[in-house]
């Protein structure tokens, strides 16, 4: 029996320098719950240090939290990595940190990078330059995500900055994304016209929320059996009636 799950796969926390300070674990979970979202993914820029806090904050709620990250490739394309276990995201984080361009965050210019706990208390400030790119090419990032068992999504492909299409002109055929993400800026109809050549790939749309009010401003419905990463993989491949849909 397939169920319909409301999913927002792209949410930043206060760890992302460009995100609002209000993007704390409890606030995110509360808002997702009010908006009837079944699954969210926490996807901070090049770091996963708030994932455990959000997962713990979701305990006792009806929201499933995926452990994600929005990675910046050497071409400055954004790629979402999605997992449902802590070990994989921490392994990925280790690889990303090793390859992140050196430098210290300038809080005044780029914004604060706040690591919090599940009670929304500040634990520390991440000093890395999370806004910067990694030295890893897009293809290497996608391969790494897959080797760790995760889902690789090309972020906001309709945007003119930081998307795989804005940076490379088109999506190379050997870049095997599990899904392409459309931003809330583009309607399903316009996406259908503009990205027709990529219609063999699965398309999702998410909020890319940097503020509380943006959570769930765009969601995708996953028709599948359970709210798990494995089922999501099957839904993206349209296996046995599973599918994804968004408006």
């Amino acid at each position: 029996m397939l169920k319909k799950f409301k999913v927002d796969l792209h949410i930043h926390t206060c760890l992302s320098p460009c995100a609002d300070l209000e993007m704390s674990p409890l606030s995110i979970i509360k808002t997702a719950s009010i908006k009837g979202i079944d699954i969210i993914a926490v996807t901070d820029h090049n770091s996963a240090e708030n994932i455990i806090a959000v997962i713990n904050a979701a305990k006792g709620s009806d929201v499933t939290v995926l452990a994600g990250m929005e990675i910046t490739s050497s071409e400055e394309a954004h790629i979402l990595a999605l997992f449902d276990d802590i070990d994989s995201i921490l392994n990925l984080q280790e690889i990303i940190y090793k390859n992140l361009l050196p430098g210290e965050n300038d809080e005044k210019r780029f914004g604060e990078q706040i690591v919090v706990n599940a009670a929304d208390e500040v634990e520390n400030f991440n000093k890395r330059l999370l806004i910067a790119a990694t030295a890893l090419e897009a293809s290497s990032i996608v391969n790494t995500i897959h080797s760790l068992g995760g889902i690789a999504v090309a972020s906001h492909v309709d945007k003119t900055t930081f998307s795989i299409i804005s940076q490379l002109g088109f999506i190379p055929e050997d870049l095997l994304f599990d899904a392409l993400e459309m931003s809330p800026n583009i309607s399903r109809e316009n996406a259908g016209q503009s990205f027709k050549k990529y219609d063999t790939a699965a398309w999702v749309s998410s909020s890319d929320a940097h503020r509380i009010s943006e959570i769930g401003q765009r969601t995708t419905f996953f028709y599948m059996k359970h709210p798990t990463l494995q089922e999501m993989k099957l839904a993206l491949k349209k296996i046995e009636g599973r599918k994804v849909e968004w408006q």
């Binding site: 400055e76 361009l101 430098g103 910067a132 790119a133």
Partner: peptide, 8 residues
């Protein structure tokens, strides 16, 4: 046009 390159 690469921000990281300009920063560096």
């Amino acid at each position: 046009d690469l921000l990281s390159d300009v920063m560096a």
